[in-house]
Nucleic acid binder design. Structure first.
Lengths: 127, 127
DNA sequence: CGGTATCCTAGGCGATACTG
DNA sequence: CAGTATCGCCTAGGATACCG
């Protein structure tokens, strides 16, 4: 009997709307290791653009999931740290990581074969 | 020592690209209860449009996460079931559900206050 | 009922350039 | 180095209407 799942689906819907985002999750995951600077995150998160980094960080600050600390130094230094709320995402995130590793083969294959465009679309323009 | 997280971040990136989608996760979650019909899913998943339902189901079939069964009856009946691969998402999904319930208050507040537009934007047009 | 096809708009997101 | 602002593509995804 898993009826409760559907009862909760509304909450799930909300949480997914808020954080079910690739960059959001990747940033949270990266910060699980501890405080990091903007440039570190930029380097470690494969493929994120500076714009999306800053933007997502700001959102996470609004959410109260991370904290921003500015050090008044000459070469400016800003550090980001997880709050307790942010840290609380560790459980689902680790479960997801484990799953990703367990199914790595399928996932990699799917990733490579994933469609750039849409299902029945003409692919002649596949640059 | 959590270095491995970053080493795996590429796989995480891949899996997130594939399934870190609100509707995808909601559908998987709904099917955890067992086989379901199109209309059932449509009813139980809060706010999904028929188009997104069909589209996401098709993607999940391509991924090999669900199976589609057609019953050649007069009022057509089609059922969707999780494959083993699909079922394997139960762990991360349940962890996420638990987290959502644990932090329900914050999430609901954030959800209500979430911005429709962008950060520093003019909100005079907030319809 | 289940699914497809078309239209159409908001906004995600990269690229680029500029401030402190 | 950290961050903002601007432009512009291009896609997600809702609304609507039509087939088997």
């Amino acid at each position: 009997m898993v009826k409760s799942i559907l009862d909760e689906s509304c909450i799930l819907n909300q949480s997914l709307t808020l954080i079910a985002d690739k960059w959001t999750l990747l940033i949270l995951m990266a910060l699980m290791q501890g405080t990091k600077r903007n440039s570190e995150l930029n380097r470690q998160i494969n493929g994120i653009s500076p714009k999306m980094l800053t933007q997502t960080l700001k959102t996470l600050i609004r959410y109260g999931m991370i904290e921003r600390t500015v050090y008044p130094e000459v070469p400016p230094r800003v550090e980001y740290t997880l709050t307790e709320f942010g840290k609380s995402t560790a459980d689902p995130l680790m479960a997801l990581l484990k799953w990703s590793v367990d199914w790595e083969e399928q996932l990699t294959t799917l990733y490579k074969n994933r469609q750039t465009g849409l299902a029945g679309k003409d692919q002649s323009a596949t640059k």
